[in-house]
Design a protein around this nucleic acid. Structure first.
Lengths: 357, 357
DNA sequence: TGTCCGATTGGAAGCGCTTCCAAGAAGATA
DNA sequence: TATCTTCTTGGAAGCGCTTCCAATCGGACA
């Protein structure tokens, strides 16, 4: 139990320095010595001790990802991108899932713990101001994703533009009474998407109406969840019997839209015939539910985040960069813009197509 | 940069041993000394160095989870359970997502690397036999989830029973021509679920027919994915015009069922009217798609796995345990067993309810 | 007052590795 | 052959902590 470099050195008849140099592929080791040492390593089934290497080299080869509850498909796909790149470059990834707000600071502190990780990815939450200086003091690389701070590398999505494009699309289809189902306005994406929605209306001379926006922060993920979507849609439909009824909704995320579809179904409201829907994210299921949505390149964002972190770890001095992705409009069935091959036009739903007569 | 216990000791006028004892809440430190040391720690903003602690104590406080590509909702939910318990007991979780088969060994080796992690969770894949002894030699705790080996703690689901119950349910609804859409028979769950299916048929005197089982291993996750499900269902429907046509399908997972529903829809085959469907897992979306399914308690399995690993880390000598979960039948719409409140009976689909006339 | 014992305390010896410096070896050059 | 270089090599000195042993201290008890 526990072959060390001393054993190797003795066995190979060299010094420990030489052994270490072989281990780390340093130059300045003669080919003969190297092969001899390597063969002894193999024979003794040597394994370097991770902690010892780390202590001595002051590198951990590990990064942490602080991410809101990752059962959300949005984060799952980002995480997949992160994980893939981490695997490619040989870094270990410690996962810190935030379920309660107070865990944010716990995980930030833990990540800042000296000698714990070499870098941190921080997702979709506001970085507490008090940690800004701590990261700088500790010279710990930090990359922000779906959130922003001027003094760190950030990756963002143009939420405002996304809201704008989504709403314009509905306007372009002839809708003028367009509601929005939003998540908690505490979150920046929610606020930005709404700003885009508002701007699109106003540039068409349509007044923004507070009573047409339902911002729910219920449940997990600041309201970005199915139940909140269902609830919001129910409320919206319940009050939709006045003059100028709503004919379209922009929903802040696909998961909420899934809930909203359920609510519409329960209320016998047809989508898209009675109410057109455009949402945001393009999670894998959006396709299944035929949601028209603003696509965020989640997997790519995850990859890029990890890549940025990696470069930053190698070159801590570089100035912070900001990368923005413009979301893409993906047109499917829920918005009523018919772009599909004829046979499918006649379907009426997931389970039962139109009775054949 | 870098306050050490030597600094603390000097500053507090005590020895480093005493400082260390304070850090680790050892007894045999007088209250007066302890408060003095703690106040100095605070004043100097001391942070212990993680790697140094680990090297000296030979504990890493970290475990790794080797898990097939976790974009699969099944794993996401298990992982959530794992992560929650890890957070509760203060362990770090390194995530190793397996995308290619050869990564399995890579991650196993990395986990076995001395001083890297204190325990390993291994999910849903066959543990290569050559690693069995290695884990024992290294005294590295290992817990298997959704897979099994007699010499390690394991957590399983009764796949055979699940297949049996699912198929019996369909038989109970009057179906006799029941197909199965399966994933790769290389995987144990697929084989077991099929064995249950087969037994259920045979105990009713219905012959098991090879041509009624479609086992696809296409795509990710050994065929446990939407595309494979879609493909299989299409194939099934294409050949379903002989005598004794199929009226029901047992599908090996919910994700496949989602794809199968899409295929049915494209082919204008109604579910459940023309073909009844029962699947397996009860991922969150099964509810949305109204799938009748065999529920696996995924979150709980994740929690339990982590709990088992934690106890094993504390008591390495205990004999391996095996915990089995019996999946529950959750009846929803897709099987045609109508158990829902009247208003919903009249819906015809996700988007468009029955035209009101 | 003297003894004894448990409660505290200090600090040396590691944990296993990387790194650096000095020194030896082997060519290269004149 | 003498003198430089340039490669190689050995191993001491850390990295910052835990742990153990020996030493000290302070009462309790006779």
């Amino acid at each position: 139990m526990g072959v060390t470099i001393y054993d190797l050195a003795r066995e190979a008849g060299v010094g420990i320095g030489t052994v270490s140099r072989c281990l780390n592929n340093h130059p300045h080791v003669s080919a003969r010595t190297r092969t001899r040492v390597l063969s002894v390593m193999k024979r003794l089934n040597y394994q370097p001790h991770a902690q010892a290497q780390r202590l001595a080299s002051r590198r951990t080869n590990t990064i942490s990802a602080i991410i809101p509850s990752f059962t959300n498909y949005f984060f799952v796909q980002i995480l997949q991108g992160v994980q893939d790149v981490a695997a490619e470059v040989g870094l270990d990834l410690i996962l810190y899932g935030v379920n309660h707000t107070d865990q944010v600071e716990l995980y930030l502190r833990r990540s800042l713990h000296r000698g714990h990780v070499d870098g941190v990815l921080f997702f979709s939450m506001k970085l507490p101001e008090s940690y800004v200086s701590r990261f700088h003091q500790m010279h710990l690389p930090l990359v922000l994703v779906d959130t922003y701070h001027p003094s760190f590398d950030s990756i963002r999505v143009e939420n405002y533009e996304g809201g704008l494009l989504a709403t314009r699309h509905l306007l372009g289809l002839g809708h003028t009474a367009i509601a929005m189902i939003n998540a908690s306005l505490e979150t920046q994406p929610a606020r930005e998407r709404m700003a885009g929605y508002r701007h699109a209306l106003e540039e068409r001379g349509i007044a923004f109406r507070d009573d047409r926006v339902i911002a729910s922060s219920m449940g997990k993920n600041d309201g970005f969840n199915r139940e909140a979507g269902r609830e919001s849609m129910s409320r919206l439909l319940a009050t939709n019997n006045g003059p100028d009824p709503i004919t379209a909704v922009f929903i802040a995320s696909d998961v909420q839209a899934l809930g909203a579809l359920e609510a519409a179904r329960s209320a016998s409201v047809r989508v898209p015939e009675d109410i057109a829907v455009v949402s945001f994210d393009d999670i894998e299921l959006a396709q299944h539910a035929e949601l028209t949505t603003m696509r965020q390149p989640m997997y790519e964002m995850g990859r890029l985040a990890m890549e940025k972190l990696y470069s930053r770890m190698k070159d801590p001095g570089a100035t912070p960069t900001l990368t923005s992705f413009l979301p893409d409009l993906v047109i499917r069935r829920s918005c009523g813009a018919v772009l599909r091959p004829a046979p499918l036009l006649h379907e009426t739903g997931l389970y039962s197509p139109i009775p054949s007569a």
